[in-house]
């Protein structure tokens, strides 16, 4: 079965862009933990500036997808893959934006409360694991892993609730409180986007909506 060699290679290339984009984000999660724990403002600035790299990849993925649709008339699983890549790229780009937003926060203030800091960095680590596993699931087409990943967003949501409903009262500075809530919100959003990515992968593999 060696038909449509060019097309098959182009599809692989498209997937590779997604993996690359995720890889970049995965590394940024690590940097983000650093920024929050050590209030490394230089690193924060770098994170913000380098967001363009993420955006460029999203553009590439969109262009490649449109080109494949035009030239190859994809159907069935090929079509689902291409459409999902467009959507996943969008979610990844939003994750990138949210990371930048959090970096902005740390340029405005430093979160001193150890408890809250721990919660927030845990959320980041969970997100990173979720994203890395999502890419593994996509590569290996592991449906059960996808299902599991989608559920993990609940974990992030739980921490979000904790931070914003109880831990927040530990903080006395009103401004910092606001920034903490923002940061938690951004992280909760990141979780949602990764959950979405999971659902797109689910659609690619099964052709159905995740219920």
């Amino acid at each position: 079965m060696s038909a449509r060699v060019k097309f098959v290679n182009d599809l692989e290339e498209l997937k590779q862009y997604i993996y690359d984009m995720s890889q970049l984000l995965s590394e940024r999660f690590d940097s983000l933990v650093n920024v929050l724990e050590n209030n490394d403002r230089a690193l924060a600035k770098e994170l913000i500036e380098r967001d363009v790299d993420i955006n460029e990849l999203e553009v590439k993925i969109n262009d490649q997808s449109v080109s494949l649709i035009t030239s190859q008339s994809p159907v069935a699983s090929d079509l689902r893959l291409i459409i999902s890549c467009i959507k996943i790229a969008e979610d990844l780009e939003r994750i990138g934006d949210n990371i930048s937003n959090i970096a902005e926060v740390s340029r405005r203030t430093q979160i001193m409360n150890k408890q809250i800091l721990l919660r927030l960095t845990t959320m980041i680590r969970l997100a990173k694991l979720m994203l890395d596993d999502a890419m593994v699931a996509m590569k290996t087409e592991d449906l059960s892993l996808v299902n599991e990943i989608i559920e993990r967003d609940n974990d992030i949501d739980q921490i979000f609730v904790q931070v914003t409903m109880s831990d927040i009262y530990e903080e006395t500075d009103a401004f910092v409180t606001g920034q903490i809530q923002l940061t938690a919100k951004y992280l909760e959003r990141i979780g949602d986007h990764i959950e979405n990515i999971g659902e797109h992968i689910f659609f690619t593999l099964t052709g159905k909506r995740y219920k």
């Binding site: 079965m1 038909a3 449509r4 097309f7 159907v75 699983s77 079509l79 689902r80």
Partner: peptide, 18 residues
């Protein structure tokens, strides 16, 4: 048939893999 065929042979045919 063209979005999510049930049989792998159908899938292979419509996607041009054979």
């Amino acid at each position: 048939i063209f979005e999510n065929p049930h049989d792998k042979r159908t899938e292979d045919y419509v996607t041009g893999r054979f």
